[in-house]
Amino acid sequence: MPEQAEPGTAPSDPGAVQAEPGTVRPGGRTARVRAAVLDAAGDVLAEQGFAHLDLADVARRAEVGKTTVYRRWGSDTGLVADLLADMAEQSLPRTDTGTLRGDLRANARLVRRTLADPRQGALFRAVIAAATCDDKTSAALRRFYEVRVTEWAPCVEQAVRRGELSPGTDPAAVVRAVSAPLYYQLLTAGSAPTEADADQAADAAVAAAEAGVYTV
């Protein structure tokens, strides 16, 4: 019988590959394995935080062999990176309302729903906390937000073409300005933002963009 790896370490199998965050995808095994493992990892993060994320525990929860999890994800940070990549892939697409205010309010309300969800809100708090002290988790979190900002940036570009905003307005800066106060409230006040908070954040971003604050 091969030697079992200790929790949090790579297996002793010389063929096992140490994964880098965001680079691992399932090979010949069914996608159900990935879904089960990522779901289990999200549960642990939401319930106990990053400090208690353990590959062996995740494998047990997902009813998947430990060797499979160690070989495919390689580390806690590799697993978190894949979880964030999956969350970005599964996020709802951009809403096109025909106006900048409508688009940004839709963005803000989507962020609010995510942060207000008991599981998702707790999960994001855990990942953000881990990112402050772990470089690989921080990089994975940045990639997650890059995907989401890129998804929503066209609503600002379209507003420029419609004449709602000045040419040279930085789309990414506007999109970040919408969600920033919602995350700040979650992290500093300990309460999920309301729909009114979401609309206020979007309206503030619109006003600032119209005033040329984000023009480069």
Rank of each mutant, 00 (worst) to 15 (best):
R119L: 13
W73V: 05
A207C: 02
R94F: 08
A205M: 03
V80P: 00
D197F: 03
A201R: 00
G163W: 08
Q90V: 07
A10W: 04
V17K: 09
A196S: 12
L83H: 02
R176M: 03
L182A: 02
G42D: 08
C155G: 01
G212D: 14
A159D: 01
R142Q: 13
V17T: 05
G74M: 04
G22R: 01
D203A: 08
A40R: 02
E20P: 00
V213R: 12
W73M: 01
L100T: 04
P171W: 13
P26M: 07
F124Q: 05
W152C: 01
E63I: 06
D117T: 02
A5K: 03
Q200M: 04
T77C: 03
G27H: 11
I128K: 12
E210V: 13
T23S: 01
L45H: 11
S91C: 06
T77K: 01
A201D: 03
E3V: 12
T188A: 15
P181G: 07
V160R: 07
V216M: 07
R109A: 08
L110M: 09
R125K: 15
P171N: 12
D199G: 03
L79H: 13
L38N: 13
S138D: 14
A35Q: 15
A207H: 06
L165Q: 10
Y145D: 08
A56T: 14
V58K: 02
L165R: 05
A180M: 04
D13A: 01
K136N: 06
D13I: 00
E195W: 00
E157V: 12
P181A: 06
G78Q: 09
V44I: 15
L84S: 12
A192I: 07
S12I: 06
L141S: 12
R101T: 15
P21R: 06
W152G: 00
A122G: 10
V160D: 06
A177D: 14
